[in-house]
Amino acid sequence: MVIENKDRNWGMVIDTDKCTGCNGCVIACQVENNVPLNDQNKFERGRVMSWMRVERYWEGEFPEVKARFIPIPCQHCANAPCEPVCPVYATYHNNEGMNIQVYNRCVGTRYCANGCPYIVRFFNYWEPIWPEEMRNHLNPDVTVRSRGIMEKCSFCIQRIRRGARKAKEENRELEDGEITTACQDACSTQAITFGDLNDPESKVSKLSKDDRSYTLMPHLNTDPNVIYLASIKENKEEFQEEKANSHD
């Protein structure tokens, strides 16, 4: 009768072919996880906090130009570079495949942020300001962090806990797709899938074995739990030409 009665390995698959760069996940994550408001000053100083961010890359020159988008949350690496450097064990890997940040342990050395190749860890340089009225919409399931604390995507652990608790109270196993992350809910095009990678029948583990699946920076051997699906280049003719050229 414990919550983790089964070893899980939570993972996420993000289909970059479906991502439109609308930033829906960014704001949904911020609201769900009480991420502080980013005022103009933070933008100007490059201190914006965004557990989930959408990066934009340019491809080509006008008129053959295209903006490509990729959403990047914490990759929850199995071999996380941030974990061994923490002097106070505030970040560690739990038995559910998640990289955990314990706020009350964190002393703010920022070593982990230096170690993270994906740059998904954010430091609270200022005390978050929430006007009295806006405190009403803060999520009571998530700690409101104070100044001097490192924070990052938690795979919406509060939703996992809530879901697991509900399943246990009803005496059943968690179903695949029962737990959704905030970014997944907000994704209009269903580009984000979340679930248990240990369950071979789950949607997320099937997608993770797709032909198009890849991980970011594989050469670092971090073994992330966030798996991306490659975008598809539409223009077949052009591709065949290119293929022909590469054979020469």
Binding site: R53, I119, F239
Partner: peptide, 19 residues
């Protein structure tokens, strides 16, 4: 610019495949 763009191989981090 808040975070660095990944300084890695071409095509990354958004990998593009042909059908």
């Amino acid at each position: 610019g808040t975070v660095e763009a990944f300084p890695i191989e071409p095509g990354f981090p958004i990998l593009i495949v042909a059908p």
